[in-house]
Design a binder for these strands. Sequence first.
RNA 1: CGGAGUGUCGUAUACCGGUAGUACGUAUGCUUUGGGAGCAUAUUGACUGGGUUCGAUUCCCAGCACUCCGACCA
Length: 411
Amino acid sequence: MKQSQLFTRTKKEAPSDEVSVNAQLLIRAGFVDKLMAGTYTFLPLGLRVFRKIENIIREEMNGLGASEILMPSLNPKENWEKSGRWDSLDNLFKFTSFYSKNEYALGATHEETVSPLMKKFVFSYKDLPTATFQIQNKFRDEKRAKSGILRGREFFMKDLYSFHTSAEDLDAYYEKATAAYKRVFERSGIGEKTYYTYASGGSFSKYSHEFQTVSEAGEDNIYICDKCLIAINDEIIEDLKHTCPECENKELRKEKAIETGNIFKLMTKFSAPFELTYKDQDGKENDVIMGCYGIGLNRLMGTVVELFHDEKGIIWPENIAPFSVHLINLGENEEAEKIYAKLLENGIEVLMDDREASAGEKFADSDLIGIPTRVVISKKSLAAGGIEVKKRNEKENKIMTVEELLQTLKK
RNA sequence: CGGAGUGUCGUAUACCGGUAGUACGUAUGCUUUGGGAGCAUAUUGACUGGGUUCGAUUCCCAGCACUCCGACCA
């Protein structure tokens, strides 16, 4: 893509009312725009990052044998009454139709939709286990939206639901889902800082498991066990008497963390009220055993920015960067076009800065946007024998040929 | 939901109870091209409503919006 085609522009200064690092950098660099507190537009660069994250998650969910669907955000009141959450969930967005006076909810999560849906397809133990997921916008009437894109009122979530004949089968699937979640965080670049965490189960169950990413921007406090690399959310630390549940280690390290994922064993909490049942081998009717598994996509994106930035801007991990290469053209139009075409031919995602701007402005923008590899083409680089290549997270640059660049990118 | 703070060109800011200024941006022209370039000209603004006052962007009240702290967070 050519930068001159982008309708967005970078800003020297962040809006004075944005304090969180993720919002400041994402707005300044032109990845997102705030519509109101807790709702953000993904701009072209931001959407590219979003799609990268989405695809990583999608690949991992497909790897679990789950099939993707897309459920409506607009939900009937009836389903939420059936589960009891019309009244119990206080951040559920509810409204009344002006014309019909019917009441509706905007989906905050989709157990109330997926359970009656699966009732139409699951009849026998032969239909189980099965799993389905979606990547969709959720609505939660947060009392206080905050921290940029980390806690919004409308946000994107990947929600996976699994259906089983037994608790043992759910347990096995839960393990597989946990492994898939770990791969999602590793591939997104935050694996090292993300801990499998024991947590409370909220309205779903007594306990659940979270994936917590260590960051000062986090809202949760977790206690990390450096022996088994798991953590405990401080909301249940008293229950566990300050020891790690896995190894009984008492020397836990307290850190602030962002909840990037949360998984629950629902058991029959939703299958029972929605009469989602199956017939077993003996012809007996049983409630389906369920699990649910969520990852917030906006939150994952914001967390990456919180973790990877410097005073000049964002430093995107390779796998979720909007582009692989930022090609900076300093007045060498013909050569730049050739290199741009060559990189595209080789399947490299390139953003070419073809604007008529000063070198300083182009460099500053490049650092702010944070594409992993910067390539400069100029009189100086050509005289030195080629193009100048610099990684966003390194200080030194190297002169090389385009062929050599292609070799490095393939590694 | 409780508490606090803030609303001035597109952005960041200044001053002020009496003609609202600067920088960046944007537009035009010329010069410039390795770290947000220079000159000239132009361009755009007091959240909404009420009150006090001869006069309010400024003071007061209400509303709305945003941010922060706390509570909440499936």
